[in-house]
């Protein structure tokens, strides 16, 4: 278990392209390492980050390299938290079809938000839907 007073806080603004998404993911993976979250928590965080960053870059900023994604993350001994904002039009998460409904099961898209909701402890959308916060509380060992 890491020291309880250890904390990492960072704020990044990056261009909407895939190499930047990978660079940011690697940075967060490295930042998470000293906190030694359980493997399963790390898996959940990585998947949720992947889905959230892809949503921001692809669906929010529509891969416009002139548009930025702002990411602020905080890691403590018992919690990972991220705030992600894109420059897109936003969306209403309540209007996203349930991908688990029988009529939607064969649709090839729309599962990213579900994975974020299921894998993180809390998820909130702000503003016009172009900002989101998500947090994962460390699972007790």
């Amino acid at each position: 278990m890491p020291e309880s007073d250890l904390e990492t806080v960072a704020e990044i603004c990056f261009a909407s392209d895939w190499p930047e998404v990978r660079r940011v993911q690697r940075e967060i993976e490295q930042a998470l390492a000293p906190f030694a979250f359980p493997d399963r928590d790390q898996f959940y965080i990585k998947i949720a980050l992947e889905e959230a960053l892809v949503n921001a870059v692809k669906h929010g900023n529509r891969l416009d390299p002139l548009k930025c994604v702002r990411l602020r993350y905080t890691i403590t001994a018992d919690r990972f938290e991220a705030h992600i904002a894109d420059e897109g039009c936003g969306f209403d998460p309540a209007h996203v079809p349930d991908p688990c409904a029988p009529e939607n099961l064969e649709r090839p898209s729309g599962r990213g938000l579900l994975l974020i909701r299921k894998f993180m402890t809390t998820v909130e959308y702000h503003g016009r839907g172009n900002c989101m916060s998500m947090a994962k509380v460390r699972t007790a060992s």
Binding site: K46, I47, E51, P108, S109, R111, G112, L114
Partner: peptide, 13 residues
């Protein structure tokens, strides 16, 4: 080891 929702879409298709 890792699989995103975009990959799921390909499997469905």
């Amino acid at each position: 080891e890792f699989l995103s929702s975009a990959a799921l879409g390909k499997l469905i298709r």
